[in-house]
């Protein structure tokens, strides 16, 4: 308890918790759909594009957020199109795009400012990154994502489970795909400075993947992912505070631990069922 009170006495930590929990929640909910549709790599690709955009913005002296949000949203559209047209192997295309964006970011940075702490914190995240306006943006974003999940829950399920059937019954599949891609892009830009470009995609992938091990219904997976993302984020931040480890990496390690735990539960369950039969 005293630890909690101590942590919350720092305004920057309160901001980090508030913003971080909201972003994790959004990432986890969007992640359920992305992971189940085998779009996980898009999150990874977008975070690298976001890093490139941020570095260029810094070098030129523009506001990082105003540059990277539109760039990443555009990239999200582009990656979705690639996937739908099937012209190029999409996993290869994403790898090419993310490596190129990263390279552009690094070259631009080294030519101008050099590897400042700003840039390094974009790579690996910083607990100090959440400003007041970021927290408000995260709150707005999570309102949109939660609203979408409440009002379009069944359509999201249909689009995630079976695009062809959803299309045939008159659901506007591409509208939902675009919506999910845009929201993912914004989530990534917001969360990236705290989690780091290298680690942000884990917020999208881990909760869904972990929940899938144990839960057998879509509803269960959605609830569990949302809960896990918030719990893991708080645990990771606390660990980061106690042991002075980088915030992003600590959150990822907590997620990994929970994932392994859930895998164990799944294996034990299967063993027990096997013995019963």
């Amino acid at each position: 308890m005293s630890l909690l009170a101590e942590m919350l006495s720092y305004p920057f930590l309160v901001r980090a918790f508030a913003g971080g929990i909201l972003v994790s929640l959004c990432a986890a909910l969007l992640g359920v759909s992305l992971v189940l549709k085998r779009y996980s790599m898009i999150g990874d690709g977008l975070s690298h594009v976001s890093f490139g955009a941020l570095s260029v913005a810094l070098a030129v002296g523009w506001s990082p957020l105003y540059v990277s949000v539109p760039v990443v949203v555009l990239a999200a559209f582009f990656l979705l199109r690639l996937r739908e047209n099937g012209k190029m192997k999409s996993d290869a295309a994403i790898a090419v795009i993310s490596a190129s964006a990263l390279a552009i970011g690094i070259v631009v940075t080294s030519l101008t400012t050099g590897m400042t702490t700003d840039v390094s914190s974009y790579m690996f995240g910083s607990i100090l990154a959440m400003s007041r306006s970021d927290v408000w943006l995260s709150a707005a974003l999570s309102l949109v994502v939660l609203g979408m999940f409440v009002f379009c829950y069944h359509k999201i399920f249909a689009v995630t489970f079976d695009e062809s059937f959803a299309k045939a019954t008159g659901v506007r599949v591409s509208l939902y795909n675009v919506m999910i891609a845009v929201l993912t892009a914004v989530t990534i830009v917001l969360g990236m400075r705290m989690m780091g470009a290298m680690l942000i995609s884990s917020l999208i992938i881990f909760p869904a993947l972990t929940s899938m091990q144990v839960f057998k219904s879509f509803r269960g997976v959605v609830w569990s992912s949302a809960a896990l993302s918030a719990v893991c984020f708080c645990a990771g931040m606390t660990a980061s505070y106690c042991f002075s480890t980088p915030a992003g990496a600590s959150v990822v390690l907590v997620n990994l631990a929970v994932f392994l735990l859930f895998c164990l539960v799944r294996t034990v369950r299967r063993e027990m069922r096997g013995r019963k039969d």
Partner: peptide, 8 residues
């Protein structure tokens, strides 16, 4: 992707 989809 459907074959291991967690849905009831």
């Amino acid at each position: 992707a459907q074959r291991d989809f967690p849905a009831s």
